[in-house]
Computed example of a mutant assay.
Amino acid sequence: MPNIQFRASGRTLTSHAGLSIIGQCIEMAGIDSLDARFPSQGVPTSDIVKAYLGLLCLGMSDFDAIENFRRDTPFRQLLNLQKVPSTATLLQRLEKLAAQDLHTLTAAWSMTLLSLAEAPITADKGHVCLDIDTFVMDNSHSRKEGVTRTCQKVDGYTPIAAYLGNEGGWTSLDATPVAVIQRYQAHATHEQFPSEIKTDLDLERLPSDKFATNDLILHLAQLAYNILRLMGQLGMTGELSPVRHPAKRRRLRTVLQELVHRAALVIHKARQTILDFGQDVGRMTVLKTLRHRFRYPKTAPC
């Protein structure tokens, strides 16, 4: 048995260096513009939304989870927050924003991000598939507003989601029966996406008792999902990928494990924040490449 000792030091470490890319994507999406539309004398509205998006992108949805990051300097810096809100402030402000119909803005954030980042969206014979389906979220044994019986014989919610690109299924009346069957088989892949939302983003059981707040949280999850999917598409499917086996896409859980939850030493020098990954050159190279790509987008939002 090796002689192992423990010690602490004044150095700043982070276990979620991937927030450096997540914070950049949130900035590209235009979240900071919320402060002009929803002014506040306390924690800025943009900080409320960015802090919760940060939690979702770490695979956490409970409001209480924010308490672990209130004294986490890298969390605040990498997400460019003025202040990390408390649990009570986060909940109260999200409830207020839900009442102010913030969810109507969230789709534009994803469109802006995916456009600026030139997200890969593949087509099949000139057509891009849009796979639309419902999925059940089991919230049994709760008193949450709007919970009803679902088709899977559990109490919960049944939201509808759409997925763009060749990951979903697409059929055409002009295609042969064989082609239709082959294309519809891809619809099975769609069944994995709700699983990622419910497990990888920790959203099987929604955190609020109020329907409007849970609705807003699902809309925020759309952006978090797209950020992690984008990181997986651009950083983990080609030669740059630190994962050896090839794949057309990576599960969100793999993105979290390989790119988001990475340890780094945080160094402040010459007005710069440096993330030192030690000997983990592979993940450092991926994150550095993503950082450069998102810093210099090639296109303007549509």
Rank of each mutant, 00 (worst) to 15 (best):
M1R: 09
P2H: 08
Q5Y: 15
A8Q: 15
A8K: 14
G10Y: 11
R11A: 13
T12H: 07
L13D: 12
A17W: 01
I21F: 00
I21S: 00
I22E: 01
G23V: 00
I26R: 00
M28R: 14
A29C: 03
S33H: 13
D35N: 10
F38R: 05
G42W: 02
S46W: 03
I48C: 05
I48K: 02
V49F: 02
V49E: 03
L56H: 05
F63N: 05
F63Q: 04
R70N: 05
D72N: 15
P74M: 02
F75G: 01
Q77I: 07
Q77Y: 10
N80G: 09
N80R: 11
K83N: 13
V84D: 07
S86N: 05
A88F: 07
A88D: 13
T89M: 06
L91V: 06
R93E: 14
A98E: 00
L102D: 06
L102Q: 04
H103I: 04
T104F: 08
T106E: 06
A108L: 07
S110F: 05
S110I: 05
S110K: 12
T112I: 06
S115G: 15
S115Q: 12
L116Q: 14
P120T: 02
P120R: 02
I121P: 06
D124T: 09
K125N: 15
I132C: 10
M137K: 08
K144S: 07
E145N: 08
T148F: 09
T148S: 13
V154R: 10
V154N: 07
D155M: 14
D155A: 12
Y157V: 03
Y157D: 08
Y157F: 15
T158H: 11
I160E: 13
Y163V: 14
G169I: 03
W170I: 08
T176K: 10
V178L: 12
A179Y: 10
A186N: 15
H187Y: 14
H187M: 09
A188M: 11
T189C: 09
T189P: 04
P194S: 03
S195A: 12
S195E: 14
I197G: 04
T199V: 11
L201Y: 01
L201E: 04
D202K: 04
L203V: 01
E204C: 04
P207V: 03
D209L: 11
K210R: 14
K210D: 11
A212K: 13
N214L: 02
L216E: 06
I217V: 08
H219M: 07
Q222H: 13
Q222K: 10
Q222V: 10
A224F: 01
Y225G: 01
Y225P: 05
N226V: 02
L228H: 01
M231V: 02
M231Q: 04
Q233I: 01
E239D: 15
L240V: 03
P242E: 07
V243M: 10
R244T: 11
K248N: 15
R249S: 15
R251V: 02
R251C: 09
L252Q: 03
A263K: 09
A264R: 03
A264Q: 04
L265A: 09
I267V: 15
A270F: 09
F277M: 00
Q279G: 10
Q279I: 07
Q279S: 12
Q279T: 09
V281F: 14
M284L: 10
V286H: 01
R291I: 01
H292L: 14
F294W: 12
P297D: 06
P297K: 03
P297Y: 04
A300K: 12
A300G: 07
